[in-house]
């Protein structure tokens, strides 16, 4: 009778380590701080979002360095994963913040977009696609532990074509995937497919992120919205 107990202890210990490291590494949300002196317009909304995205990216690069195993990858592979997965990470964070809302996207605590604001900013279609993800995770009751794991998995699984050491990246994916499976076995034993269901949401995240990148690339080409260097650099990495 000692064996199952031991096994439970082992599973909990392993799962807790990765999940708790990710929970601790989770960045605080940052504020959009739209300029109150500028009248509302599509350009103002997009300028606010691009500035927010740039600052979020700085924070998320710091976060990636706390994913267990990520810093042991070569610098080139760390860069490649971030260049592929950055928009998925940004969107997943917006989605998680929006889970308590009804048809609104919480880009930041002080920047919540409803349908009308989305239309004004020319983001109606993109925001609707993001809301589809919100709906999916709402119906599943996505937990914070699952969110931090999925975000790390999205990064490790970002399918960059430039990876030097694909075995090391595979090991990182295995550690994170294993942590998700262990978490679900311990916390959702009633649904043995929950880990798989969560993984199956990732194609929609990839598709939505690709759409967002495309949209912001055309905004960049249009040249009317100022963009900071890191955001520009990562948009260019996607072209």
């Amino acid at each position: 009778s000692g064996l199952p107990q031991k096994k439970t202890f082992f599973v909990d210990a392993v799962e807790n380590k990765v999940v708790s490291l990710l929970l601790v590494a989770e960045p605080e949300s940052i504020f959009a701080m739209p300029d109150p002196t500028v009248p509302e317009s599509d350009i103002k909304a997009l300028t606010t979002l691009c500035d927010l995205a740039d600052r979020e990216l700085v924070v998320n690069i710091g976060w990636a360095k706390h994913i267990p195993g990520f810093p042991t990858l070569s610098l080139a592979d760390q860069m490649s994963l971030l260049q592929s997965g950055w928009m998925e990470i940004l969107i997943l964070r917006v989605v998680f913040r929006s889970l308590t809302m009804e048809d609104k996207l919480v880009y930041a605590e002080d920047y919540i977009m409803d349908e009308e604001q989305s239309k004004l900013a020319g983001l109606f279609d993109l925001n609707n696609a993001i809301l589809q993800l919100v709906k999916k995770y709402k119906s599943m009751g996505l937990e914070k532990e699952e969110f931090v794991l999925l975000k790390a998995i999205a990064l490790a699984n970002s399918d960059s074509m430039q990876i030097e050491d694909s075995e090391a990246v595979q090991r990182l994916q295995d550690v994170l995937h294993g942590a998700l499976q262990d978490y679900e076995a311990a916390h959702h034993p009633e649904d043995c497919r929950r880990a798989g269901k969560l993984i199956m949401t990732l194609p929609l995240l990839r598709q939505t992120a690709a759409r967002a990148v495309q949209h912001f690339c055309s905004i960049k080409q249009d040249g009317r919205v100022p963009m900071h260097k890191l955001f520009l650099e990562l948009l260019e990495a996607k072209v």
Partner: peptide
């Protein structure tokens, strides 16, 4: 790699993010 200077800098900097 030269094209991705800021990402490179941010990843290398182990303490605080570089001042952008």
């Amino acid at each position: 790699k030269e094209k991705h200077k800021i990402l490179h800098q941010l990843l290398q900097n182990s303490t605080s993010p570089v001042d952008l």
